[in-house]
């Protein structure tokens, strides 16, 4: 059989060209322009090389771009912990058999299909200090002392963002765990039960090892999502109060809007480097798994 003839290379042409031109080249070009003073005004003056100046600015300027970078990393780590652990237990709970499991699954997944912009707007109104549902509910329950300025108090704004993010994301993570749990043979648990294994030891010795595929995919999705997060922060707080909840992507958009294209691409390139390091690591692990099969 002539493989070249029945599997022609031209089948690859369209995706490959689109991917290279509109995905890869902008990233490479971004790395290139991050060493220039490219801005909205350079149409007249031309683009000049400035070496590492943009990166020096990022790490030393008083605009605090560094906190945008650390916030991005912090968001990635914490938002994933907040979603993964409850989602795992929720999936186990549903898997062990609850009446109406299908309905609950449908319902819990529902938030994650909605646009972030919408969720942001809805929670902006729910978390409003004076008229928001949350504060009013607290008051009705005689818990008025728990009322907070959820989106403008520095101590609470990140917690609110994590809360909203979890509201949207837990169902999604849970669904992937559920599919993983479905592939574990029931006999394993029966055998463990006969041996007298309790909940925690079953979790540790059967569920977690058997779930490694689902855990892996949740990590990958979660990490890439966290590093690129934009919509929810842009709509909920727009980086505020002050610059407290700014992340790389929001700074990058701001710089772009101000016409500082060079700085904007430099920040984007920092993000690219972070994802590159993590991505190479993840692809390696996935490649290894494939070899084992």
């Amino acid at each position: 059989m002539n493989k070249k003839r029945i599997y022609p290379q031209w089948f690859l042409v369209i995706p490959l060209i689109a991917y290279v031109i509109f995905f890869l080249i902008p990233s490479l070009l971004g790395a290139f322009y991050s060493f220039t003073d490219w801005s909205a005004y350079s149409a007249n003056t031309g683009v000049k090389f400035v070496g590492l100046q943009n990166y020096i600015d990022i790490f030393t300027s008083n605009k605090d771009y560094v906190s945008g970078i650390t916030n991005t990393l912090m968001f990635t780590v914490i938002s994933n912990i907040i979603k993964l652990i409850p989602a795992l237990f929720l999936a186990i709970l549903l898997q062990e058999g609850v009446k109406g499991k299908g309905l609950y699954r449908t319902l819990f997944y529902l938030p994650s299909i909605l646009p972030f912009v919408i969720i942001g707007l809805v929670f902006k109104s729910i978390l409003n200090y004076n008229t928001g549902l949350l504060n009013m509910a607290l008051e009705t329950l005689q818990l008025g002392f728990l009322k907070q300025k959820w989106l403008s108090d520095l101590d609470f704004v990140w917690k609110s963002i994590f809360g909203v993010d979890a509201w949207r994301g837990i169902g999604y993570v849970m669904t992937i765990f559920l599919a993983g749990l479905n592939t574990i043979p029931h006999s394993y648990y029966e055998a463990a039960q006969i041996d007298g294994a309790g909940f925690w030891s079953r979790l540790r010795h059967i569920t977690l090892p058997m779930l490694s595929g689902a855990i892996m995919i949740n990590f990958v999705f979660g990490i890439t999502y966290g590093l690129k997060v934009f919509d929810i922060i842009y709509v909920l707080t727009n980086g505020g109060p002050g610059h407290a909840t700014e992340v790389i992507t929001t700074y990058s958009y701001q710089l772009y809007s101000n016409g500082q294209y060079g700085m904007s691409t430099a920040l984007n390139t920092v993000l690219l480097l972070i994802t590159l390091v993590i991505g190479v690591f993840v692809v390696r692990i996935m490649g290894k798994k494939e070899v084992q099969q």
């Binding site: 509109f22 990233s27 772009y256 294209y261």
Partner: peptide, 26 residues
């Protein structure tokens, strides 16, 4: 080549899009 192209495309799962230069390309 195809194996390489597969992993090459797979990298896109992680990359952030650089919109500023994307506009330039467009």
């Amino acid at each position: 080549i195809n194996n390489f192209l597969y992993y090459f495309i797979l990298c896109g799962l992680f990359f952030p899009v650089n919109y500023v230069t994307l506009i330039k390309v467009l």
